[in-house]
Amino acid sequence: MLEFLVSNQVSDFKTIFVGIIVESFPFIILGILVSAIFAVFVKDEFIYKFLPKNRFLKLPVLSLLGVFMPVCECGNVPVVRRFLKKKLSVAHSVTFLLAAPILNPITIFSTSQAFGWDSEILVYRILGGFIIANLVGLIVLITTNSDEDLLTEDFYKEVCDSHHHDHSHDKLRDTVSIFIKEFNEVMGMMLIGALIAAFTQIFIPRDIITQIGTNLPLSILAMMIMAFVVSICANVDAFFALSYANTFSKGSIVSFLTFGPMVDIKIFSMLKTTFKIKFLVYLTSIIALLSFILGILVNLLQ
């Protein structure tokens, strides 16, 4: 037992685990800061003034907000929690959550650095991310009745209570109070997600996934599983994907680059603070299906 605890596997597990947390930390802080400022200084009416009245038109507008949010997926979780507290519906908030990590300037820049500005992969990623986020938002909008059914009991209570706390005389106190609370909520779940992601990276042989790279449909599935397991930040995942570009089909690389920023072990764990597991499984299934179809379409176009 002691031998195992001091083994290279445990030591590498620790390095990857802490690596994920430390790498995500500044993005989480940025996201929480935006969320806290948003909560205290931005009135609900202000948001609705800038969003179209039509609930379907709101989807593309929210999905494009990511262009102004240079934060990876971890940083968007607190922002989405704030959107929900500001009475934005689950469908609309989810559309932002899924699109923002892909349509943000840092992700676009890093993808261009890895694959080139004129690369089809960059175009497929941006278009695919935009379309999937909007389709998922639309499906949630049409198929769900009440947000209460989708949110965890605790978080739904917070959503209901949030309006009573919005007006205070000490805005600085309110901001830091939200900041510290969001940090505990999000970071706690982030640690659990990072723990699982690091464990799977060390103790589950990766070649089980990559050996199926030669089969076109299976290669798409393999890269999606890889994206889920590896939980790499959207801002740099293009470099990771590039190292598989020679062995995997273009479609599978595009599926990796769209599915990964939307759902992975780390994000799934963080979103458990907000959404019911049943809804998260439903959401993941739709995203997986659409990302898979995107991969197939890209392969067919080659």
């Binding site: 083994s7 596997q9 030591s11 590498d12 620790k14 990857i16 990276q201 060390i202 042989p205």
Partner: peptide, 13 residues
Amino acid sequence: LSPLSSAVLGQRN
């Protein structure tokens, strides 16, 4: 903490 080692290299061959 230590640098990544052979355990990860074996995984990422």
